[in-house]
């Protein structure tokens, strides 16, 4: 699914975003980088429908979604530190999107089991999120976002709080999930290594606007 921001601007108290335009081709793994506080997370929130732009349009596969509710957009969202639902078990979190869609229970159970295994959290399905490690939380948040097979996936520093071993493992996992599902990903990070490892497209906030490049261009 093609993501397209067309001259998007936003005013939120002291925070301003103006003239943000970029396009991510279908199936790409775009990595968005930029200094702290430049509005990377806001771009994800705009794409998910959690904030409305003041002006400008957001398109998904050519369709204008600017005024659509978050529920209607079908964009998977993995926020920073996971933001797991504190009172739901790991299995219930992963099955959440399917249950609110009233999917048959057998289908929910099968999908939860499948994602549990894929993400290596199958043994945690009955546990509450309390006491999970940083890596486990991120995997659960990822499973929760993937359960309804979104065409677009937003990841907000999903590897930020992980130690080095876990970091490599998660990178490999994200790569394989992206390759298998063909989802269009928009991944926010501070880490140039992460970008190098994962990105098929680089987006960089530079003096208020977003510059697009391919990783190879970037190396040159």
């Amino acid at each position: 699914m093609v993501i397209c921001f067309d001259s998007v601007a936003l005013n939120q108290g002291d925070f301003h975003l103006s003239n943000v335009s970029f396009e991510v081709p279908a199936g790409a793994y775009a990595v968005l980088m930029g200094p702290t506080g430049c509005g990377k997370t806001t771009v994800l929130e705009l794409l998910c429908g959690l904030r409305a732009p003041l002006i400008g349009k957001i398109h998904l596969d050519g369709a204008d979604v600017t005024k659509l509710s978050p529920a209607a957009r079908g964009v998977g969202y993995v926020p920073q530190d996971g933001a797991l639902f504190p009172k739901l078990t790991v299995g219930e979190q992963i099955g959440f999107a399917l249950r609110v869609r009233r999917a048959p229970e057998a289908e929910v159970v099968a999908r939860v089991a499948e994602l549990g295994e894929l993400l290596g959290v199958g043994h945690l399905l009955g546990r509450s999120p309390h006491g999970l490690s940083g890596g486990e939380r991120q995997r659960v948040a990822l499973g929760r976002a993937l359960a309804f097979r979104p065409k677009v996936l937003c990841l907000d520093e999903p590897l930020g709080a992980l130690d080095e071993d876990m970091h490599g493992e998660m990178c490999a996992l994200l790569k394989s999930i992206h390759a298998e599902s063909g989802v269009t990903a928009l991944h926010v990070t501070h880490s140039a290594n992460e970008a190098e490892e994962l990105a098929t497209q680089l987006l960089r906030f530079e003096s208020g606007s977003i510059r697009t490049s391919t990783p190879r261009e970037n190396e040159r």
Binding site: E45, C48, G49, L50, S69, P70, A71, R73, G74, V75, G76, Y77, P79, A83, L84, F85, P86, L88, F96, A97, V100, R101, A141, R144, A145, A147, F148
Partner: peptide, 18 residues
């Protein structure tokens, strides 16, 4: 977490209750 529930397809009422 409530916002995440919305992106997962929940209505505001579902996000509130669940």
């Amino acid at each position: 977490p409530e916002q995440v529930a919305l992106t997962l397809g929940a209505s505001r009422a579902q996000a509130f209750w669940r």
